[in-house]
């Protein structure tokens, strides 16, 4: 939701990034304020997942230009784990499997790390167990998943729910959800979207990276951005997603070409 007294959380200016010397981001400008939900849409290869990973600090990408200001700090001064502790959360498109590490152990360490960061008390295993089970109910998750290894042999839907569970435990300032809707059936999509909606408030912001309009039926964005070839080529309100759904991504390009031609 757009608030009058909102704060600027993230200010991206002219962001360029490469992977293996190939330029993927070619000058991104984007401002995210507290309370807002942004959707970033675009075709495969348009750079939207790269943008998500670059913001989280993935080491495969090299920043070749531009600035990102996060709450007055230069984001690129922070290591990936420092960004996470400062409140940037990435919901992975393909959550990583970590054999041998129990989910509850992993979640508690992540949670307690965040607690320490915020000068709050760490929770012992029993206290944490109560908390995590409460959060899991919201996402209709089976408690036996706590004892399983992180993401190992999880179904696509379970992995995505696990991402949102982590988001709910870490309570980030900016949640970047990379294709969280992919691989979800209709019920799971509803549950996951419901979880995201419950976590959104006037102090945080959400960035949904997605191909499809369908998740936006559940999570209503304040802004929709369309990416193409490493740039944001169009920005609009929630109705833009519907237009895209109706006309396809080519429509944006045609419109853009037409605008340039005019």
């Amino acid at each position: 939701m757009i608030y009058q007294d909102s704060k600027t959380l993230l200010k991206i200016r002219g962001l360029c990034a490469t992977v293996n010397n190939s330029e993927i981001l070619k000058g991104i400008d984007l401002t995210i304020k507290s309370g807002e939900i942004h959707a970033i849409m675009g075709t495969n290869g348009s750079g939207k997942s790269t943008l998500a990973k670059v913001l989280a600090g993935h080491t495969s990408y090299e920043i070749t230009g531009g600035t990102v200001d996060f709450e007055g700090k230069n984001l690129f001064d922070l290591a990936p784990e420092e960004r996470a502790r400062a409140g940037i959360f990435l919901g992975f498109q393909y959550p990583i499997e970590i054999p041998g590490v129990a989910n509850n152990q992993f979640l508690r360490l992540a949670f307690n790390t965040a607690q320490v960061q915020q000068n709050k008390d760490e929770l012992d295993p029993l206290e944490f167990d109560d908390l995590v089970r409460e959060k899991m109910k919201l996402l209709e998750m089976n408690p036996d998943f706590l004892d399983r290894s992180v993401n190992e042999n999880f179904s696509g839907g379970e992995k995505k729910r696990n991402e949102i569970l982590q988001m709910s435990l870490l309570d980030p300032k900016i949640a970047i959800l990379d294709e969280t809707d992919s691989g979800l059936d209709i019920d799971a999509l509803r549950i996951v979207s419901n979880g995201v909606n419950q976590l959104a408030n006037k102090d945080n912001a959400t960035i949904l990276v997605t191909h499809y309009q369908r998740m936006l039926n559940y999570i209503v964005p304040d802004y929709v951005h369309v990416m193409d070839s490493g740039r944001i080529v169009k920005t609009g309100g929630k109705e833009l997603a519907l237009d895209l759904e109706k006309h396809g991504y080519d429509w944006v390009n045609i419109e853009k070409t037409a605008a340039v031609g005019a």
Partner: peptide
């Protein structure tokens, strides 16, 4: 690397 990035993204060094 991907495992370590996943941990890092959850604040774990």
């Amino acid at each position: 690397e991907d495992q370590l990035f996943y941990f890092a993204q959850r604040g774990i060094g």
